[in-house]
Design a protein around this nucleic acid. Sequence first.
RNA 1: GGGCGGAUAGCUCAGCGGACAGAGCGCAGCCCUUACAAGGCUGAGGACGUAGGUUCGAAUCCUACUCCGCCUACCA
Length: 920
Amino acid sequence: MPDFHDLAAAPEPAPVLSGGPQASMENVMQDGRPDPLSAAYNPADVESRWYDFWLERGYFTARPDQDRERFTVTMPPPNVTGQLTMGHMLGESIRDVLVRWQRMEGKDVLYLPGMDHAGIATQNVVERKLESEGKKRQDLGRDGFLREAWAWKEEYGGKILQQLRRVGVSVDWSRERFTLDEGYSRAVLLVFKRLYEKGLVYRGHYIVNWCPRCHTALSDEQVENQEVDGHLHFLRYPVKDGEGKHITVATTRPETMLGDVAVAVNPRDRRFKKLVGKTAVLPFLRREIPIIADDAVDPKFGGGALKVTPAHDPVDLELARRHGLQPVVVMDTEGRMNENAGDFAGLDRFEARKRVLERLTDLGLLEKSEPYRFTLGVCERCETVIEPYLSLQWFVKMAPLAQPALEAARRNQVKFFPKRWRKVYRHWLENVHDWCISRQLWWGHRIPVWYCRKPGCPSTAVELERPGPCWHCGGTDWQQDEDVLDTWFSSWLWPFATLGWPEETADLKTYYPNQLMVTGPDIIFLWVARMVMAGCECLGQPPYPFVLLTSIVRDAQGQKMSKSLGNSPDPMDLMDRYGADAVRFTMVYLTPTDQDLLFDEKRCETGKFFANKVWNAARLVRSRLGDEDPRGVRESGLELQLADRWVLSRLANAIKDTTRNLKTSRLNEAANTVYHFTWHEYCDWYLEMVKPRWADQAEPRDRRVARWVAWKVLDGILRLLHPFMPFVTEELWQALPHEGESLCVAAWPKARRAWYDAQAEAQVSFLQGVVVAVRNLRAEMNVPAGKRVPVVVRGSREQLDLLRQLTPQLLPLARIERLDLAYDGLRPPVAASAVVEGAEVFLPLEGVVDVESERARLAREADRLLTELEGTKRKLRNQDFLSKAKPEVVDRERQKLQQFEETLEKLKRAQEALREAPAS
RNA sequence: GGGCGGAUAGCUCAGCGGACAGAGCGCAGCCCUUACAAGGCUGAGGACGUAGGUUCGAAUCCUACUCCGCCUACCA
């Protein structure tokens, strides 16, 4: 077995189950020794054991010095404030499946973990903590607060990473990164500086999304849109010298009228022709504001006139700038009306809205209020209503950065799976707005911009360190910008800043670009697109060639799982109750390729029961292996039986399908393939068929074959399953004869060409048909489950020979007492019967069976077949079908016809035979 | 307003041009058969959202519609 890691010095693996100290179960193996594998699988017991073992052996540590193909994936860094969610659980399961699979394929794997400092979220948490102590961040000052935040990070920050260990993620902890650690911070500041120098970072007064509760600006992507039922209010502004005339504007935010500087109408709107150029008088403040004409005004909306509030609306700001109008800010950073709001100063914006409406009503200036449905922006962190707010902020000019990112996708240098997300990505990049990156917070990367404080000196320096003397005035009194950078301004560097960039580290050279990104489609804009932009900008190539977008986890009602809704189970609790393997497997097994995952925790039983099934299959094989060591056995020297050839062929197919599904990112299909093969082929059929060959009285040479095949296939199953269920598979693999020291570095199985055996598959499929037919007849005829029955089969010589060969293995499968093969062509006089691939299976009645019900059953069966037959005949009578359909399709139809006719013929004879039978 | 998904068994999904439409869970019946009751066997259950069209043939391709979900947008 190839050994992919430099582990020559590693000692033998701990004999965990091979008679280890925990072997305390009462089960006894055939040879009388106690069996350490308990009858019921206990995940907690097993799962606590292996993670440290893997870590100690360094299996997860990437080795860039080795000459192997590499496979690099970075973990989307969870927030330091984080709690493991079901979304993480899914993402981590998927990533770890792929990573473990690639490791078993022999690649040099780097799965890099880390955390995000999560500016707003963390600052909120720390502020809340201070609040509970009766303190505010301002009391501590900036440095004091940061000390507090770091202390908090040290204490709680790694909690989610601890939780991830529980999941079993095979990450390289030696390369763990934090977006606020020293080297990483340097990379962030450097990118800011470089973009500034290229003119792609600029500072300016614009309308930003302001959260009055978090006291900071947000990017567009950090605002969530909610549909709300509100009102559209129609306000009347008196026209100066208008002889009592008014102009009516419509708004959902009446309080912003206090910041109005104009009323705008569409220049082509005849209704207002005479008013353009006149002056309106703003109620309360008596401010005289011009009535202007601008194309941006939609004459069909509201009354056709737009109130212009440049300090509180982006469209209005642009419009005002076109007309040289000065904005008036009427709110403070808390969302309260400020001194420009006249009598309303000091009121909260919503209170002010109420009062404005009341007083307008009193003055007869509120024309009407109509119910109106519109979208409202709320802060993604605290759900506070966002206030569009004019302020001085830093921005990234996005269009130039977007071009290479678009190009990369166009050239397929970045591919998306499922494909449709590419469109989403492209659409966003094509319409991207500039990115507001300054945040009025303390926790984060402080903006590396310095302003000379000498009065009148205009110097601004962008430097990672405090600059030397001012080149303009010679002063040294620099004031650093108070703001920090948006968290995503650091996250977008994740695929390479984690590898040491901007230093030319060995890691960077080896592991950039990464091979894969696995994340949720909800952060394509926020993160994925930006990472591609940053990768192209900083390293000249995209950070990874492939993005796998996972399902979003929702509850059974389709609602997104979230803490606030309380509809998300705690993954830790699930793992306690079902086992980490079970939850992992279930998530992957359930996740649809291109849809959200509606999750119900009860589904974890699928994984739990499956783990138990595998556990027990291994227990069986292990006990029947006796003291035989199958490892030395040469496959070529074995005389394989039909069942052996069949199961090896099925294994080959399972390996092929699982591997293909992993390659094409159909993880659920991959899980499904292993599940089905293990349970419904290996366990249900092979292990059942092989049991008689293990018996004491069985022929020793063949017993050896049966043992070897059972072991070999199980070994293959454990390998295939390991990425999905790392703990239980390692436990079992160690407990069975194995080569190498850990399953997680064992080779991914290869399907041997010689294993494929179409003939064996066809033959076993026939035998299964016979068994199922007998079971079916028994059930239909209400034969008591425990009763053994005689069975007679008529059929071709080949069919009968096949049955004869396998008779001993077949009998227990259908509780058959005696299998009579009618080489003489005789049929039992009175029997229930079924047809399998042309062969007739008889369950002689002999009082066991009710003749009437068998007649009815046969009639039903014949009826059904007749319908089929008719359909086929109809097709074959159709000239168009015969001439236009593909020849092989026509041919298949002819075969069907023949088969139906034969079967029907046999059913009829069975019916005739019963007609002569005495009623029971 | 634009865009994207979805609609198939009670539930969650697979099938995406040719044989009575499949799986898992759930349900019903029978079984504690010495790996597993976290198990085994058997079974019931479906106008493939609606209406048209293309085709020898449609759950599958096209068009329209209905209903759900998501994303996006400077009609205030």
